[in-house]
Amino acid sequence: MAETLVKKFVVTRFDPDKDEAPRTESYEVPCHPDWKVLDALNHIKDEIDGSLAHRWSCRMSVCGSCGMNVNGQPTLTCKKAVSDLPDTVEVTPLANFPVVRDLVVELDGFMEKLKSVKPWIIRAKEKAVEEGPMRQSQAELEEFKQFSMCINCMLCYAACPVVANEPEFLGPAAIALGHRYSVDSRDEGAAERNEIFRGEGTVFACSYANECSEVCPKHVDPAAAVNQAKFNAVIDWAAGLVLPRGGKE
């Protein structure tokens, strides 16, 4: 019989209609040793306090819904084992995001940033289906593959000190996604995205904290993407001074 771990969960609660500001509530949860933090939260919701609100879906670290700060660290709660945590576990909503309710944060700001980098294949002339798939070598695929792994969990935004201070900054995931497309051999839109990267959301706001890559549960390494994007943005700008537009790579 597996030994139950009893942990105290201190969870942020906030109902804008009732609470002036977020407060906390504590719950004693008898945890199965195989549980993740999410299982404990669901136990609270099912058995102790049905009014707790949190987002989750796949429970297998791929949908990106369940990001929260656990003991100060941005964490995917479906991935973090309860047995790896001390007896008291603090669960707060993702840092750097406005809080809508309990552990639920406002996501539309992120959705806007994501859309603004034009995360789609840009080509001068669309390819016809009859022509079949475009050719791409495995090596070309490897160039951007890592950056395409982002599940939009936003842990990187919760970790980034620049996101905390500069609302215009595009942020790690959005830049990584834009960069993923610019580097994709099938895409022809790098110049357009480089202009966006040099614009208001400027990639140059990144000051090398590397926290985004430290917390990323999918090993996307957004810090690499952001700094590669800086490089490309500069080369593109310099080339633009020397060559007329249209003479790009």
Binding site: D17, D49, G50, S51, A53, H54, R55, V100, R101, D102
Partner: peptide, 10 residues
């Protein structure tokens, strides 16, 4: 249990 209007997941 949850009588809140805002983001009521229950």
């Amino acid at each position: 249990e949850d009588s809140s209007k805002v983001f009521n997941t229950e």
